[in-house]
């Protein structure tokens, strides 16, 4: 009896030592990694995953910040598509902006990158000048400048007056107001241009030499060599710029004084979301708007990746 109890006692102690050993081993193996990861893990769960789940839940409620949220089913989403003309306006404005600003911006970026890639002198200077607007672009100061440029008595109209053209007030005319923001976005073609330049550098020069020996015109060389080899970069730039365009906020906010005026013509999706959340405190509805934005971006990205195998050329 004493022997067996002693034995079991020692076995128990053995187990304890065993688990302690296992724990120590786990700690030795995984501990440092998780210690280094700790700040990110806290942020990931506390500020990303937790809020995401909460916001998904709130999108099915009538949360207004002051009273407890009540479950309202899918009615926020139903309202978006059936009973909210401002949502429809915001969708129109945002899609119009994306469809025109992104291709124009990328076209300019590629055009200038190709000009710069000809081994011209002064490349660093040109590159810096074209990049500067990209760097300044989203600040309030530039939005203020834009408001002035395209005002009724602004710089653009002073310039047009030299040719006897009496320009409208671009900013306050709903027909043109969104275009001023598209121009602002295209003006910032610098960063995709730099990425294009890096991509163009990767294309081996002897391909062009071989093509011109075979008598291929510059135009044909562009279509048959440059563009196909550059498609991975085009693909990348298109995705990044489209997502950025969907999320565009500051210029429209500053130029329209936070309203999306005139007549909702600059009511960007994110601006509408901001109004609903922090202007009217319809936090439940705004959460639904946020999740629909995520769905649109995810759908666009998935669609791009799925179609990419038909038009993006990969070397390997």
């Amino acid at each position: 009896m004493t022997a067996s109890s002693l034995e079991s006692g020692s076995r128990g102690a053995g187990n304890k030592v065993g688990t302690r050993n296992v724990l120590a081993k786990i700690w030795q193996q995984d501990g440092p990694g998780y210690m280094f990861l700790l700040p990110w893990l806290i942020g990931f769960f506390g500020l990303t995953v937790g809020p995401m789940v909460t916001s998904l839940y709130l999108s099915f409620t009538d949360f207004d910040l002051l009273t407890d949220p009540n479950w309202v089913g899918a009615s926020n989403y139903v309202r978006m598509f059936t009973a909210d003309p401002k949502f429809a306006a915001a969708m129109r404005v945002t899609f119009f902006f994306v469809i025109f600003s992104v291709p124009l911006k990328l076209a300019f970026a590629l055009l200038v990158a190709m000009l710069l890639n000809r081994g011209l002198r002064g490349l660093p200077l040109y590159r810096a000048i074209f990049y500067l607007p990209s760097l300044l672009g989203t600040s309030v100061a530039i939005a203020i400048l834009w408001r002035q440029l395209f005002a009724g008595d602004g710089l653009v109209n002073q310039f047009l007056a030299n040719f006897g053209i009496d320009g409208p007030s671009w900013i306050s005319n709903p027909r043109y107001s969104l275009w001023t923001l598209i121009v602002l976005s295209v003006w910032q073609f610098g960063s995709p241009m730099i990425i294009f330049l890096a991509g163009l550098r990767q294309i081996p020069q002897d391909m062009y030499e071989a093509a011109s020996l075979d008598g291929a015109s510059k135009f044909r060389q562009f279509y048959k060599i440059t563009l196909p080899l550059l498609t991975p970069v085009v693909f990348f730039n298109a995705i990044v710029q489209t997502i950025e365009a969907f999320k565009s906020f500051t210029p429209a906010f500053v130029i329209s004084g936070g309203t999306g005026a005139p007549i909702n013509s600059t009511l960007f999706y994110t601006l509408y979301l901001y109004q609903e959340a922090f202007g009217f405190f319809r936090m439940g509805y705004a959460s639904a708007l946020a999740w629909f934005l995520l769905a649109m971006i995810a759908a666009f990205t998935a669609f791009s990746f799925l179609t990419s195998k038909y038009w993006v050329h990969y070397d390997d």
Binding site: P51, M52, S55, I243, S287, A290, L294, I297
Partner: peptide, 20 residues
């Protein structure tokens, strides 16, 4: 998971973060 958060528009975390 970290790479997935790269694509995430901050709007889906904005409101709960504000409440927090």
């Amino acid at each position: 998971l970290m790479l997935m958060t790269l694509m995430l528009p901050y709007h889906v975390t904005l409101i709960p973060q504000y409440v927090l």
